[in-house]
């Protein structure tokens, strides 16, 4: 690599850094000036100056892309209208109408795909929470080699999702995959499962992969919450004759709920929008393993329907937004943040 190339790369980083620093410096100065000279409230200037970088960052990274997406959804942009798309509210309604009335995959329309996505999310979050909590309860007890188990159980979380997804895909290979080799050895040749070509089994394969990848996160969250539960409650309950089930449902779960509820909400959002696992396990082969975001990917990047894809993304956003609001109201998740 020549000096020129290195210098150019460094200069690009340097320019970006310099511009960011300069911009923030100017913003801070303006805020300082506005508070002191215009509002005559110099004591509040520091609060504004400290909040400004985060607010600007959020605006640029969240608000601007959302506005851009909204604008794009009001267009007919695709490869045929790439440089000169037309914009208008009629395009927005057309795009939204297409989301609900036309096939968004080759055969499948929006509603069956939404059902598939919800099914996928419910299965995943249920397994993540139940298994994660079970493992956390075990790890929270006095067992031997606890730290070793903890380390091993956390491994799937530490592995890059792309690597994990591709590795799992290999394990579901009909002939050379781990599962079918074991099944053949135990039950004979006829026991091999067509993981990649049968819709049901492909969906099962997707679920196995994502359960493996998602349980450690919930386990760590639950373990952290469990360690904050005072042991006195259990001692008192034991003295009153409470069994294990009663202690779990009357003490443990209510006490870890403030931590668990937001984690479940995160789990719902992440799983609903999980692109990696369906993509790597199914690779757009079977529609029965597609979910809304993989359909969105195809619309945007395989078929370059940018206007339609933006409208579709807005629909997914509002579905998730609605689910999150209902969930928060029902469970009181994020209540602690409000308090």
């Amino acid at each position: 690599m020549s000096f020129e190339v290195v210098a150019k790369s460094l200069s690009q980083i340097g320019v970006t850094l310099a511009l960011i620093l300069l911009a923030f410096g100017l913003v801070e100065l303006v805020i300082f000036f506005v508070y002191n000279k215009i509002f005559k409230a110099g004591d509040k200037a520091l609060t504004g100056m400290l909040l400004a970088p985060a607010l600007i960052g959020l605006f640029l990274l969240i608000v601007v892309p959302l506005i851009y997406e909204l604008i794009l959804s009001c267009s007919n942009m695709n490869l045929h209208h790439f440089k000169d798309p037309s914009f208008g509210i009629t395009y927005f309604f057309d795009n939204i109408k297409r989301v609900f009335t036309t096939k968004i995959l080759k055969q499948m329309t929006f509603w069956p795909l939404l059902f598939q996505t919800v099914l996928w999310t419910v299965i995943q979050v249920t397994f993540h929470v139940v298994l994660g909590l079970m493992l956390a309860l075990i790890l929270n007890s006095n067992i031997k080699f606890r730290d070793l188990y903890k380390g091993i159980l956390i491994l799937p979380w530490a592995m890059p999702p792309v690597i994990a997804g591709l590795t799992w895909r290999g394990e579901f290979h009909a002939e050379y995959g781990f599962f079918n080799i074991i099944l053949r050895k135990v039950f004979g040749d006829g026991a091999a499962i067509p993981w990649m070509t049968d819709g049901f089994w492909n969906f099962v394969a997707m679920n196995i992969t994502n359960i493996w990848m998602g349980v450690p996160f919930m386990m760590v969250i639950c373990l952290g919450a469990l360690q904050g539960v005072p042991t006195e409650y259990y001692e008192a309950a034991a003295m009153d004759g409470a069994g294990k089930g009663t202690r779990l449902f009357k003490i443990t779960i209510p006490l870890i709920k403030p931590v668990l509820a937001p984690s479940v909400m995160l789990g719902i959002i992440w799983t609903f929008n999980n692109f990696n696992v369906p993509y790597f396990i199914n690779q757009f082969m079977l529609e029965s393993s597609d979910i809304l975001v993989t359909a969105l990917y195809r619309a945007a990047f395989s078929y370059n329907q940018y206007g339609f894809a933006a409208a579709f993304a807005l629909v997914i956003f509002f579905i998730l937004f609605g689910i999150s609001i209902i969930y928060m109201k029902q469970t009181g998740a994020l209540k602690a943040v409000g308090d």
Binding site: S11, Q12, G14, A18, L21
Partner: peptide, 14 residues
């Protein structure tokens, strides 16, 4: 490091 990174564009720009 910041000084170096920031000064490079000016040198390189020249």
């Amino acid at each position: 490091l910041l000084t170096v990174l920031i000064s490079i564009p000016f040198i390189s720009a020249n």
